[in-house]
Nucleic acid binder design. Structure first.
Lengths: 168, 168
DNA sequence: CACAATACGTCAGCTTTGTTGACATTCCAA
DNA sequence: TTGGAATGTCAACAAAGCTGACGTATTGTG
């Protein structure tokens, strides 16, 4: 379909061919493996998995967030998240406090131990991302983020932008 | 963004800050969800999962590939791959033929039905990737691929490059 | 030739992480 | 005040990853 070779406008559309798009798909597949490899290695030595990493990451980013909000960001069922949260709470990495205004809600925070785990996992992942950034350079990074953002579902893009503009 | 600060050297390094790197990590997380969303939706209506999609994709890309080779590309155990392959073969989507030169090997091919499934899944995924490409533009796409490639493990990068340079 | 190594398949059992269903608690609005 | 919506928890199950052990056919080597 997009296989045409004649740029009729002032700009070539060759980067939209099936071939080029396919390369992007495979790049995504292989890169995501690298993206998760380092934290996964650390998690394997503890009794946790990737789901715990995600929960800890976003609780760190949004302290006091509710279970429902976390659900929307992670895009899993509440039962699935609950299992993860339960073990993190039992192990003293996350605290859950009943909401003051709305007692149905639980507000989630990292404990000191939870913050330590978050840092350990994030450091490993950040190191790889940073070295990829460095290898590719600032302009490539800008393009990287543009394409990723365009690849998201509308709802995820909303969460992404909200988090992006919040200070660390 | 990374261009805005005061470069003390010839080039600004602001794009390597923890903050910028963290944004990339979150972009990767949210984008991967979009990346798999469309094929997942289709697969949910059939009796297959993401693992089947991956197998079918790479058999399509490397017709006649051996089980061992597929194992290296997918990075799973043979027991895990075998479960997937067994169902695909039983359902007549993949054929497995004894190697001619080395009879220990099995060469894998898609049947017509397998190729049809592959196309259905890939079309959905390609559409999204193409629209992300279009929205971001050719220069962004180049950067996108550079960063992803730099993010891969050495071995995955090897597979990626080998597949990239092979015609469709 | 004898024997080690390779390629593949399979059984059994476990873990992580997703799912649906049922249910308790809390809030809010008719 | 009461019934429905929202929030969160528990139980049971499925997909797909993992390790370990073993069997079989084939290949390559000392």
């Amino acid at each position: 379909m997009a296989q045409s070779g004649q740029p009729t406008m002032g700009q070539s559309l060759l980067f939209l061919t099936d071939e080029q798009v396919r390369i992007g798909i495979e790049a995504m597949f292989f890169a995501y493996r690298g993206f998760t490899a380092d934290p996964d290695r650390i998690l394997a030595t503890k009794a946790y998995g990737r789901a715990h990493h995600r929960a800890v990451h976003f609780i760190h980013r949004s302290p006091g967030t509710t279970v429902n909000n976390l659900l929307a960001i992670l895009g899993v069922t509440k039962q699935s998240l609950n299992r993860v949260l339960r073990s993190l709470i039992a192990d003293g990495l996350v605290s859950s406090t009943v909401g003051k205004a709305d007692k149905r809600e639980r507000h989630l925070h990292l404990t000191d131990a939870g913050a330590a785990l978050e840092r350990e996992l994030s450091d490993a992942q950040r190191d790889r991302m940073r070295s990829a950034y460095r290898a590719a350079g600032p302009e490539a990074v800008a393009g990287f983020r543009e394409v990723l953002e365009a690849m998201m579902d509308e709802e995820m893009r909303h969460h992404y932008r909200a988090m992006k503009d919040r200070p660390e």
